[in-house]
């Protein structure tokens, strides 16, 4: 353990993991609440095109990724609001467009498949100091807004129409959620990679809601699980010599499996007191 901490790249990796692990579920909870769990995946795919654009034009890939991801997120939101395309079809097209565009541009930039790999599955151990500053600032922004505005975001995601009638500027908040998701994806790009980033936004939430009844507890517990999976994943990937991104996601899934077992047992005990409920079919 001490040996691991003596490496500077591991110190940076762990710090990046802390920020990513907290930020991804902080905004992911609202996506799950809105039943837009796959939105993060869609934006992640679009961000790949942004990365490729950066490689092609010699601009820092993080910057182009964040710009393209935000534009993509806003387009999805506008399609959802005004378009005649259903949400899942719009998302599907985004998946295809993002991946194709990304791979095509990376080829044009003359980069190898290995470069592609670092963005698709993360390369947390190559995080530089300046990367770390960007990751930290953006993550603090995401966590601050997701927690600070949680009454408003909760109302919009719980019941969009009621929120609108109550005078909440629903469109502004919907776009804010999509933009925060896009920012989070760029933050997590180095940690778990674009293909798995959505897992860190969704799986901790799915795990925590196995055991919770309230939104607030679900939100905070999801952030705790995200933190545990990200840090634990980096540590164990060092120990067993695996790629950090997939290790983090598998650890989160393991937490989900344990939580689901405990949750089912707890509900069985509670079910003797309260009648069975069939409405709880989500995730």
């Amino acid at each position: 353990m001490t040996e691991m901490l003596s490496y500077e790249f591991m110190q940076r990796a762990l710090i990046a993991a802390v920020f990513t692990g907290l930020a991804a579920p902080a905004i992911g909870t609202f996506l799950v609440q809105r039943r837009l769990a796959l939105l993060g995946d869609g934006i992640g795919h679009v961000a790949l095109t942004g990365v490729a654009l950066g490689l092609l034009t010699n601009v820092a890939p993080v910057l182009t990724a964040i710009v393209v991801a935000i534009i993509g997120a806003i387009i999805i939101e506008l399609l959802r609001m005004f378009g005649r395309t259903s949400g899942d079809v719009a998302l599907a097209m985004l998946f295809y467009g993002g991946i194709s565009g990304g791979v095509l541009l990376i080829n044009l930039a003359g980069e190898s498949a290995a470069t592609l790999n670092t963005f698709l599955f993360g390369s947390i151990t190559t995080v530089s100091n300046s990367d770390l500053v960007v990751v930290a600032l953006l993550a603090v922004l995401v966590i601050g807004l997701a927690v600070g505005l949680s009454p408003q975001l909760f109302a919009v995601c719980q019941d969009e129409e009621h929120a609108q009638v109550s005078g909440v500027p629903v469109r502004v908040y919907s776009i804010l959620i999509a933009v925060l998701a896009a920012v989070t994806i760029t933050v997590a790009m180095r940690t778990v990679g674009l293909l798995l980033v959505s897992a860190l936004m969704v799986v901790p939430v799915a795990a925590s809601q196995q055991l919770t009844r309230s939104f607030r507890t679900t939100h905070l517990a999801a952030m705790a699980i995200g933190l545990f999976a990200a840090v634990g994943g980096v540590v164990s990937s060092y120990q067993i010599n695996t790629q950090p991104g997939p290790t983090i996601v598998l650890l989160a899934l393991a937490v989900f499996a344990v939580a689901a077992l405990f949750g089912a047992a707890a509900r069985r005990v509670r079910g003797r007191r309260h009648p069975v409920d069939f409405a709880r079919g989500d995730i």
């Binding site: 799950v32 009621h162 939104f215």
Partner: peptide
């Protein structure tokens, strides 16, 4: 706040659990 909209119940439950208190509190926004 003078207008109270009560939508159809099928829209009540979202993708994340929420307590009665939390949902009613959203009426205070």
């Amino acid at each position: 706040h003078r207008l109270g909209y009560v939508p159809q119940r099928s829209r009540a439950v979202a993708g994340v659990p929420a307590t009665v208190h939390e949902v009613v509190m959203s009426g205070r926004l």
